[in-house]
Computed example of a mutant assay.
Amino acid sequence: MKKLSLALMTLSLLAATGNAFAADPVVTKAGSGTINFSGIINNDACSVQGSDLNKTISVPMGEVSIKDMGTAAAPIGSGKLSAENFDMKINCNAGTKVSMIFEAKKGAGSGLVDGTGVLKLIDGLGAAKNIGIALLNADGALIDLSSPATAKIENNLQDGNTSLKFSAAYVTTGAAGTAVAGRGDATLPFTLQYE
Rank of each mutant, 00 (worst) to 15 (best):
K2M: 05
K3P: 01
K3V: 03
L4Y: 07
L4P: 00
M9G: 07
L11V: 08
L11F: 06
L13C: 08
L14F: 08
A15V: 12
G18P: 02
D24A: 15
V27M: 09
V27I: 11
K29H: 10
G33I: 05
T34L: 14
I40W: 07
I40H: 14
N42Y: 04
N42D: 14
N43H: 08
A45P: 00
S47Y: 04
K55F: 01
E63N: 15
E63C: 10
S65A: 15
S65G: 10
A72M: 12
A73Y: 10
A74W: 08
S78N: 11
G79M: 12
L81Q: 03
L81F: 02
F86P: 00
D87F: 05
M88G: 01
M88N: 02
K89R: 14
I90N: 13
I90S: 00
N93A: 15
A94Y: 06
G95H: 12
T96L: 12
K97F: 07
V98Y: 01
V98N: 02
S99W: 04
I101L: 12
F102S: 09
G107M: 07
S110Q: 00
L112R: 06
L112Y: 07
G115S: 10
T116K: 06
L119S: 09
L121N: 01
I122G: 04
G126A: 05
A127D: 13
N130V: 10
G132D: 14
N137E: 00
A141T: 14
S146K: 06
S146V: 05
A149S: 09
T150G: 04
I153M: 02
I153Q: 03
N155S: 14
L157A: 13
Q158K: 13
G160Y: 11
N161F: 08
S163T: 15
K165H: 07
F166S: 07
F166Q: 05
S167A: 04
A168Y: 07
A169N: 00
T172M: 00
A175F: 03
A175V: 06
A176I: 01
G177P: 09
G177L: 11
T178S: 15
A179K: 00
